[in-house]
Computed example of a mutant assay.
Amino acid sequence: MSTAAVMQSSNPAELWDAVVARNRKFDGAVYYGVSTTSIYCRPSCPSRRPKPENVQFFFDPESAERAGFRACLRCKPRELPGSEKLQLVRNVCRAVEKNVDSPLPMKQLSAELKMNAATLDRAFKQSTGITIKQYAEARRLSLFKTALRFRQDVTTAIYEAGYNSSSRVYEHSNARLGMTPAAYSKGGNGIRIRYAIAPYSAGRALLAVTEKGICGVKLGSDPDRLIHELEGEYPKAELVHADSELRDWMSNLLRRLEGEIDLPELPVDVRTTAFQRRVYEELRRIPAGETRTYSQIAKKLGGESGRRAVARACATNNVAVFIPCHRVVRSDGGMGGYRWGLDRKEDLLARERQYRRR
C-alpha cells in the first residue's frame, strides 16, 4: 500500500487496526511512535503492542524522528525486507534507464513508484551503496562514454547522454573519466604519463603522474615488472621516465610508505564509478595507523551487505597509499587482501602507528 493511498483513505482507527493485526501491507506507508518509549515502529513489528492512547502515527521515518522518536532496533523501520528492497531497486533502475537521456525529477519518480522520496532514496542507498542521483549520473556518464567509443563527436555525445551543457561534462571529466572527453574518445591515445621508480624499505615504488595528478602507484621488488604493469595499463599513452622531474612527488610517496603522516595532499587522476568514489572518500577519512573493517565502511555507505563491493573497490585502487586501502581489514581481525602483498600492508600500518606514537 502506498503512502499517498494511506494518507488519503485512512483514519486513526484504521491505522490502529493495522498495528493490532501487524498488517504488513501498511509497512513503508505508515509508522507508529510510542510516547512511553520514544520509539517508532512499522505496523508489523513483533514487539509488545502499546496502549492506543500512547500511539502517534506518521507517514515517513523523518517525521517520526523530528517528533523525537528513534527507530526500533527490532523491526528496523528505516529498512525494507530483502525481497521488497530487491524489487524496489529493480523498479528504480528501470525508471532511470527509461529516462537516462532526460533526468527524472525525484518528485516524479517517487510518485511513479508510490513511495515517499526520502524513504525511496534511503532504501535504494541501503541496497546499492549509492543514491538514486548518483546512479542516474553514472548511467548518463556510461551512455556518454559509449557514444564516444562509437566515434560520435563530443558535442553530440554530450546532448544525447542528457547533459544540459558541455561545461558540466568538462567540469567533472578529470574525476570521472580520468582525462578529457576528447582524449577518452581516442582511448587515451596521446596522453603523456611521467613515471619514476625509487627504492624504499620494503622494495621498490613506481609513481605515475599525468598532467592532472597521480594516476598510478605500484609496489614490488622488480622495477622492470612494475614498468611492464604500467605499460599494460596504459598501452596507448606516451610513457616518459622522469625521476628528476618527479623528485618532490616521489619524496611525498616514499615518506608515506615509511609511515609519515600530515604530509601535503597531492592531486590524483583516477577513473572511478560513483560507488568507488564514495568508498575512496571514506578511506581517506581513516586516520593514519588506524583501521576500519569492510563491513564498517559498507555500513557508512548505507548497508553492511555492500562489504564485498567495498572489498572490490579497495582491490581496484590504482593509487595505493594516497587512497589508503591498506587501512581496511576483515571483521575477524585478519588483514584481508592487499594487491601489493600482506607483508607490505602490515608493515605500512605498523610504521604509521609507530610514527603516531612519537
Results as ranks from 00 to 15, higher is better:
309 A>C: 05
310 V>W: 03
310 V>E: 04
310 V>Q: 02
311 A>P: 05
311 A>K: 08
312 R>C: 02
313 A>N: 00
313 A>I: 03
314 C>E: 04
314 C>W: 01
316 T>K: 10
317 N>I: 03
318 N>T: 09
318 N>D: 15
318 N>G: 01
318 N>W: 07
319 V>A: 11
319 V>N: 01
320 A>I: 03
320 A>S: 05
320 A>L: 04
321 V>A: 07
321 V>K: 02
322 F>S: 04
323 I>P: 00
323 I>E: 00
324 P>V: 05
324 P>Y: 11
327 R>I: 08
327 R>Y: 11
327 R>L: 09
328 V>M: 08
329 V>P: 09
329 V>Q: 14
329 V>W: 01
330 R>Y: 09
332 D>T: 15
332 D>L: 09
332 D>G: 07
332 D>N: 15
333 G>S: 14
333 G>C: 11
334 G>E: 04
334 G>T: 10
334 G>F: 10
335 M>L: 12
335 M>Q: 10
336 G>C: 08
336 G>E: 02
337 G>H: 08
337 G>L: 12
337 G>V: 09
337 G>D: 13
338 Y>C: 01
338 Y>E: 11
338 Y>V: 05
338 Y>M: 15
339 R>Y: 13
339 R>E: 10
339 R>H: 13
339 R>T: 15
339 R>C: 06
340 W>T: 04
341 G>Q: 07
342 L>E: 14
342 L>A: 13
342 L>G: 12
343 D>W: 15
343 D>A: 11
343 D>M: 14
344 R>W: 11
345 K>H: 15
345 K>I: 14
346 E>M: 06
346 E>K: 15
348 L>R: 00
350 A>I: 03
351 R>K: 09
352 E>W: 00
352 E>Q: 12
